[in-house]
């Protein structure tokens, strides 16, 4: 039990890390990773939704009729997204403004529905929470690392939380504007995927 629990948790961190290994949930990945801060915020919000929707769906898995299961999952996920939205509006208002439309769009993030369908609907609550937590942390790490690359090259800073950068390039640094514009997101993610392939294959 403990071993499989650890296995479900860690597979989200490397073996099946979203969005690199499972190419799901690309929209928030590309859109919010202008800085590390946004990436972490988005990742944490998604993790919250993943963990709780996985838990509830796995508890209800024997009650929900299989024909209308997708509709039920969507309602459960939408409820948790609304909770996150209201919480962020209350406690982290600046981040809420920055992420904007992408917070309600967690509902249609394929990772959340994908885990509900592929994992939580077949496994017990404890395993499902471990799976959701692992996937969520993996997703957060991916967003933060892509955010770090883009922010460092495009802006010359790294900001973890609260708007003050913890690292700044020298005054001679010329920002590579391309990286924080739209095309930089695609190219950056493409190159990171390529690096993951090189490292992972060995």
């Amino acid at each position: 039990m403990a071993q499989s629990l650890a296995k479900e948790f860690t597979k989200g961190l490397w073996a099946e890390i979203p969005p690199f290994r499972l190419v799901l949930g690309l929209c928030p990945t590309l859109a919010v990773t202008k800085s590390v801060e946004n990436g972490i915020g988005m990742g944490v919000a998604t993790t919250f939704v993943l963990v709780f929707s996985n838990l509830l769906i796995s508890l209800l898995r024997n009650v929900i009729p299989s024909k209308v299961r997708i509709a039920c999952y969507v309602v459960i996920i939408a409820t948790f997204v609304t909770i996150v939205e209201l919480l962020m509006q209350a406690y982290t208002y600046e981040l809420f403004l920055k992420l904007g439309i992408f917070i309600p769009l967690i509902v249609v993030n394929c990772i959340v529905l994908g885990r509900a369908e592929a994992f939580a609907s077949k496994n017990g609550p404890v395993l499902s929470v471990a799976d959701g937590l692992g996937m969520g942390i993996g997703f957060t790490l991916s967003l933060a690392s892509l955010g770090a690359v883009r922010e460092l090259l495009g802006n010359g800073t790294i900001t973890i939380w609260g708007g003050t950068p913890i690292f700044e390039m020298g005054a001679n640094f010329l920002p590579f504007q391309f990286m924080i514009e739209a095309p930089g997101a695609f190219v950056g993610l493409g190159l990171m995927l390529c690096m993951m392939n090189i490292v992972g294959k060995k």
Partner: peptide, 9 residues
């Protein structure tokens, strides 16, 4: 996917 993303960029 990798080359696809770079092309999209």
């Amino acid at each position: 996917t990798s080359i696809g993303l770079i092309t999209a960029g």
